[in-house]
Write a protein that binds this DNA or RNA. Structure first.
Lengths: 149, 149
DNA sequence: AGACCTATATATAAACA
DNA sequence: TTGTTTATATATAGGTC
């Protein structure tokens, strides 16, 4: 974006790509920080370089924002969209505490089924069950809060 | 940053603050998108307006990045830093698939303990157990992937 | 790798439609 | 609200060290 206009596409040279990643990541974190300060908002930014290093920014903290996001997110683990531009979306806030069914974690499996030995299919079932339970936990927490406060 | 230099501090006027939030959020998402495209990186941005609305951007998807982050993050839920600037940090990559203990979900509770009737304390225990299990699932999936691909 | 430089592209505050 | 317009502040590609 500067000396000469660059097209927004993958940089082929590895060293150059990493330099750009570092510079732009810093810029991104700064922008996020300014957004939080000026608008009294909460934000988290998580990036992974191609090399696999993770970098995160968050206000008031990464984890606080992720925890809050979890309570909004009804389908974590299922969205998959390659078009970065269109993947910016508003998260509907009303999905938060919907409980879909009453199936729990141990409906038709042996109690000591080990995650470490599961197949992909079993893991997917477990993942669904955990999503379900998470929703129940959120619903129950909200119930307690509404009774208490 | 423009007509006149503005100090990076909280905007008091509510309407103006929201306008700025919208504009800067769009800018932030665009920057994140460019970072992903140019550097072939993965990134997620999550923001909450003061009004409580959540907005998220992610490439390849918000959930993919969060799941990957979970497998790096050893202490989700415990970090708390008010200084946004210093809260940008590198996440050590070697924490990835370490599973801290072997406690599962039903170690000392009755099998049909109902989420709908749990106390806050019980819910917190359950939440920890689910976090633990989620990490195990991610570790197992990574293992399968490394064996398969 | 980083830190600085500099010219140019972008982002954006304020105003208005 | 949402989209302009415009003037100016920032971000950053491509260098150099």
């Amino acid at each position: 974006m500067v000396r000469t206009k660059v097209e927004i596409k993958r940089i082929e040279d590895k060293a150059k790509r990493h330099t750009t990643f570092t510079k732009r990541r810093q810029g991104l974190f700064k922008k996020a920080s300014e957004l939080c300060k000026r608008c009294n908002a909460e934000a988290a930014v998580i990036t992974f370089s191609l090399a696999g290093n993770a970098f995160a920014f968050g206000h008031p903290s990464v984890n606080a924002v992720l925890a809050r996001y979890d309570s909004y997110d009804a389908n974590r683990g299922s969205v998959d969209d390659d078009d970065a531009e269109s993947n910016a979306r508003k998260v509907p806030e009303d999905d938060a505490v919907v409980v879909a069914s009453n199936e729990g974690l141990n409906d038709d499996e042996d109690d000591d089924m080990k995650v470490e030995e599961m197949s992909m299919e079993e893991l997917e079932k477990l993942d669904s069950a955990m999503e379900e339970m998470k929703r129940k936990v959120i619903a129950r927490v909200n119930e307690i809060i509404s009774l208490t406060g």
